[in-house]
Simulated assay, not measured.
Amino acid sequence: MRHTPHYLMTNPEEVRRLIRAHPWATIVSPTSNGLVASHYPVLLEEEAEGISIVSHVGRPDEKLHELGQHEVLVVIQGPHDYVSASWYAPDDLVSTWNHVTAHLYGVPEILSEEENYGVLSRLTDHFEHGREGARSLSQDEAGTRRIAKGTVGLRLRVTRFDARAKLSQNKSPEVWERITEELDASNPALAEEMRRKAT
């Protein structure tokens, strides 16, 4: 990401919060055959020290990514949106894009078949929670274990991260407030991030 020190997010707890709220991730690997990217849900390991996430990939993505052989980049994309220059002072003509984004780095650990099934169960239960007619892998463990063999689980203990919250911090308080009010109507999650950053 562009080097913008005043947008840096350096607190690991803020990155953990972002992962919790936005678990759809992009995994990028610099493989021997070039760059490979895939998209999967991730779960934060709440009890882990530092930042650790678990996920899975569908076979043969573990081979395409050469998982476990090198560092990967996992991109967590939080709320983002276009910010129109029409919300600025009349002589300010350069629009922008506000966003909250984290780049996570580490070497993935491949999970055992049993650990993978546990992660798949946790992922399912997490996203099914609160839904009417929620489903669980445990409803047909034998069948879901057969299907799980088509996936490979992974754990990424994050060794470093680069995160940004670019939220119009460079604008005057009046313009910042106008942007936030405009986003309240079109992107309340981004407006909330702006207010959180201001406190």
Rank of each mutant, 00 (worst) to 15 (best):
L104G: 02
K197N: 12
T144H: 12
R178E: 14
V152Q: 14
A21C: 13
N98I: 01
W176T: 12
P12E: 06
V152N: 02
S29P: 13
V158Y: 04
W97D: 09
H99E: 13
Y88N: 07
V57I: 09
S29G: 15
I51K: 01
D81V: 01
P60V: 04
D140P: 15
L123R: 00
D81I: 03
H126R: 15
L67F: 09
R157N: 15
G153Q: 15
F161D: 10
P23R: 05
E62C: 05
L167M: 08
A85F: 03
H65F: 05
Y88F: 12
L123D: 00
V152A: 09
V36L: 09
V28Y: 00
L18C: 10
A142K: 14
P79L: 04
V94C: 06
A85G: 08
R145A: 12
H80M: 05
T31Q: 12
N187A: 09
L154F: 14
I76K: 00
Q77R: 14
A89Q: 13
T180L: 01
A48N: 11
D125A: 06
R160A: 09
H126Q: 13
S84D: 15
D125Q: 12
N187I: 02
M9G: 00
E47P: 00
L120G: 00
A48K: 02
T180I: 01
D184P: 01
S52D: 00
S86W: 01
A25D: 06
G153Y: 11
R164Q: 07
L190K: 05
I110W: 01
I19G: 00
